[in-house]
Design a binder for these strands. Sequence first.
DNA 1: CTCTAAAAGCAAATTATTTGCTTTAGTGGA
DNA 2: TCCACTAAAGCAAATAATTTGCTTTTAGAG
Lengths: 201, 201
Amino acid sequence: MPVAGWDMEQKQRVAEKSPQAMPRPGGRAARIQAAVFKAVDELKQAGEELTVPAIATRAGVTPSTIYRRWGTLAELLSDVAVRQLRPDAAPPDSGDWRADLKGWLEQYAEEMASEPGRAMIRDVLAADRVDNACACSAYTGQQLDVIRQRALDRGDSPPDTAVLMDRVVAPVIYRILFGRETPGGEYVAGLVAEVLRDGEG
Amino acid sequence: MPVAGWDMEQKQRVAEKSPQAMPRPGGRAARIQAAVFKAVDELKQAGEELTVPAIATRAGVTPSTIYRRWGTLAELLSDVAVRQLRPDAAPPDSGDWRADLKGWLEQYAEEMASEPGRAMIRDVLAADRVDNACACSAYTGQQLDVIRQRALDRGDSPPDTAVLMDRVVAPVIYRILFGRETPGGEYVAGLVAEVLRDGEG
DNA sequence: CTCTAAAAGCAAATTATTTGCTTTAGTGGA
DNA sequence: TCCACTAAAGCAAATAATTTGCTTTTAGAG
């Protein structure tokens, strides 16, 4: 049973429990994982075929290393996709949290509906790795929490994160995954307007 | 470029345009497709490994037939999953459409959250076949339409199908796909209660 | 500095996929 | 009814991917 590629959260979590249980960040395991992830990115960029042998060659690694660590190409791609889906910055702060929420969702919808975005979601889901899928919604929840916290700091009462996930995130993702056309700006704005109308004290 | 397995809708659609363009329903193409689909079902039942050679053997067909018709195992499994996701009956009619809606959603959530259900959704999505994913939401929409039509017949004004998809179906599917735990009965009932409160008259 | 366990490399064996060519089944026209 | 014609299936050889047993390397512990 191969050990999944370690990401930072996992390191964190395990390290808390048993500080001795992790390879050093600069160790071989981490180096190889980085090389493989980079190889996948580069091949994707170059539009080359993503096969385990091709990735292995690019990463300067032997295919059996990848098979033993990740099991299948799908699981490797799932891990890669989760990393790429991790947000790199907090949502912008305009001072108006409602506008920030609307702006954030518009950008989120656009990114996820793009061809690369759709491919990443597919990759995450294709590999029956519950943790990876959960990480994606956790990232989204964290972004929403940032916006909500600003509202709370100003004494406002924004909808719960769970409500926002149900009312704005879920419909957008559902339409991206199961719909023929991608959710447009008016649609997204409508979702936000409705949840703000219904959901605030 | 392999031609995807024909399903009834496609036949219908093409047949309308050019009555001569389809193989007969009892023709070889249909027979082979049926044999392959059956083979997949049987292997799944038996818990055997699903590989193209295994499916081909079981179907009494040569692997290259499958590769040329479907391209990849993922696409074949996607086609199989869509067929299985097609509802086999209209939602039960108790005379109370609100109760029917709640009951239908509870059963839908349970089915989709089950391990076979999750696998089918994954299979449908894994194969970047927009038509297959769309068919799934179309089936769901049709079921909702049946319930709505009963409400309309009684002079009630149920929420639009699109609203129901956004407010009840999407959150359930989102949680199944991206959540750690499956949506429970209380949660589902809550979604229905809210959309009925917000969305009517 | 050595010892150990985990993970990587290597190569052979197995399995899956692709491909060129041949054969067959269904369709339309004489 | 019979004869082409086309699309799809069969077959088998060639290629590519995956698995596996064994050896070697590496990081970390004593």
